[in-house]
Amino acid sequence: MTEQAALQIPPAADHVLVVDDHPLFCDALILTLRSIWDFRTIDTASTLDQALEHLKGGSGVGFIVLDLNLPDVDGLDGLMRLRNAAKDAIVLVVSSMADNRMIARTIQAGANGFVPKHSQRTVFRQAIERVVAGDIYLPGGYVEPDTGEDHAGSKAARLAVTRLASLTNQQARILSLLCEGRLNKQIAYDLSIAETTVKAHVTAIMRKLGVHSRTQAVLIAQEARFNKVLPLPDEPQ
């Protein structure tokens, strides 16, 4: 029995979307995936918007391989928006930011597994085996962050990730624009929706985040950025 035949990929996960903006790594990742299993389809996207567009209209994507560093997202926002757009898909994060706290926040934000970006093929195989079996895959050497001694900023980041994960994709996009300082009418123009619709979304966003102002909503979003999730230089991992 060949190595490929030994790995059973369910039909629902046989269509893969690789989301990564680095062409060379994206090509290498596709070769790695093909060497592990003859996936029916492997598509690619270099930005979050391309990935979300690809997922529209019943694309059949059942497995997403995601790099957290994309040109059009900040922090874990991309992961949460993809999770909302493809609730039934397996999401495997592949990132160079393999800090324990980043891994923990990634799983909390909805990923099924985390693989350090330059792992060997055997690691990718183990990860795929675990996640298609319904388990969570964590890389070797991962240590659960000590919540008892965790930095206050990291605690706030965990809470922010949990709250942000409850937003719909459209709400997440609007919150991202709020973080850029856009007014309701500017957001309405950018998204081609009515200003009253924007106001309704903003109200829903504040309710889900448990805040009473746009400024507080923006602060919650900022807590989920990479510089808040990663430990301070002198902080134990």
Rank of each mutant, 00 (worst) to 15 (best):
Q4L: 12
L7A: 06
P10A: 08
P11D: 14
A12K: 14
A13G: 00
A13H: 15
D14M: 10
V19L: 06
D20Y: 11
P23D: 11
L24P: 01
C26M: 10
C26V: 03
A28L: 15
L29M: 15
L31T: 14
T32D: 12
S35R: 15
I36P: 02
W37M: 01
R40E: 14
I42E: 03
D43I: 07
D43W: 04
D43V: 11
D43Y: 05
L48C: 02
A51V: 08
L52Q: 10
L55A: 06
G57N: 15
G60Q: 04
L66F: 09
N69Q: 12
P71F: 12
D72Q: 10
V73C: 13
D74I: 02
D77S: 08
G78R: 06
R81P: 08
R83M: 10
N84G: 11
A85F: 05
A86T: 11
D88C: 04
L92G: 12
V94Y: 01
S95Y: 02
M97S: 14
M97V: 05
A104I: 00
A104N: 09
A104G: 05
T106L: 12
G110C: 08
N112F: 02
G113P: 07
F114Q: 02
F114L: 08
V115I: 13
P116N: 11
T122I: 10
V123W: 01
R125Q: 13
Q126Y: 10
Q126L: 09
V132A: 09
V132S: 06
A133G: 12
A133T: 04
D135G: 07
Y137M: 05
G140H: 14
V143A: 13
E144Y: 07
P145D: 03
D146K: 05
G148Y: 07
H151Y: 13
K155F: 04
K155C: 13
R158Q: 13
R158I: 02
A160F: 00
V161N: 09
V161Y: 00
L164H: 01
S166M: 14
A172T: 02
R173N: 01
I174C: 10
R182H: 12
L183V: 02
D190I: 13
S192D: 14
A194Y: 00
E195Y: 07
T196L: 04
T197N: 07
K199A: 15
V202A: 06
T203K: 12
A204S: 10
I205C: 09
M206Q: 15
S213W: 15
R214C: 13
T215E: 14
A221Q: 03
A224D: 06
V229A: 08
P231N: 10
P231I: 02
P231H: 07
L232E: 10
